[in-house]
């Protein structure tokens, strides 16, 4: 069971920030491999879930960028570039993301931010609206898909989006005001 002491969350948050900045300074491939192995060993709880999140969110982008850059460097120089810096770049990105996801599993962000009510209120309002807007966006796209015989293209999406943006935003603003008022009435 998590301790209700907000200092614990702030200390963990500070430790995570220090760890990611230290990780971002490392260029040696061996040190990075050892550090990643050590952090995976230390942060065993939720390891599979967090590595899966890293594999889905970070690995494709980093791998694509690294491979493209490697290929362009190869073509530009006419010789195979050193693989180690590209591998270190990928490993660094994986390690920092793994540390971030693992820290979030262990930190209650809202408890850590408790002494600052305005950022907390802005964060809550924004997160609530992000979820609402993403849901509405998905529903709008599905609606558009159901109305068309063929698969909707970019032009269809843009044409459809023009009509719903105003209504979506009105709905979102009303909802945000409700959330904000509710938080204010509770002392935030």
């Amino acid at each position: 069971m998590r301790s209700p002491d907000p200092r614990r969350d702030r200390i963990l948050l500070g430790g995570w920030l220090l760890a990611v900045f230290l990780a971002s300074a490392v260029t040696d491939l061996l040190v990075l491999t050892a550090a990643l192995a050590a952090s995976m060993l230390l942060l065993r709880r939720g390891l599979v879930r967090n590595m899966r999140r890293v594999a889905l969110s970070v690995v494709p982008v980093t791998a694509l960028l690294s491979l493209l850059s490697f290929a362009v460097s190869w073509i530009a120089r006419g010789a195979i570039p050193d693989v180690a810096p590209f591998a270190a770049l990928g490993l660094r990105a994986v390690m920092i993301s793994f540390l971030t996801f693992s820290a979030l599993d262990r930190v209650n962000l809202f408890r850590a931010l408790a002494p600052w009510p305005t950022p907390t209120r802005l964060l809550v309002v924004t997160l609530a609206q992000i979820h609402a807007l993403r849901l509405l966006l998905t529903e709008s796209l599905l609606g558009l898909k159901s109305r068309l015989v063929r698969k909707p293209g970019t032009i269809d999406v843009v044409r459809g989006a023009g009509g719903i943006t105003g209504a979506l935003f009105s709905l979102s603003a009303r909802n945000a005001r409700d959330v904000s008022d509710a938080m204010r009435s509770r002392g935030f």
């Binding site: 305005t118 950022p119 209120r121 802005l122 309002v125 924004t126 609530a128 609206q129 992000i130 609402a132 807007l133 993403r134 966006l137 935003f169 979102s172 603003a173 909802n175 945000a176 005001r177 959330v179 904000s180 204010r184």
Partner: peptide, 22 residues
Amino acid sequence: HFGRASTDSLPIIGSLTALAFV
């Protein structure tokens, strides 16, 4: 911009921030 005086504008700013995120 985010002091006590921003109480009324905060929901709209939050919504626009969410819109930017989406």
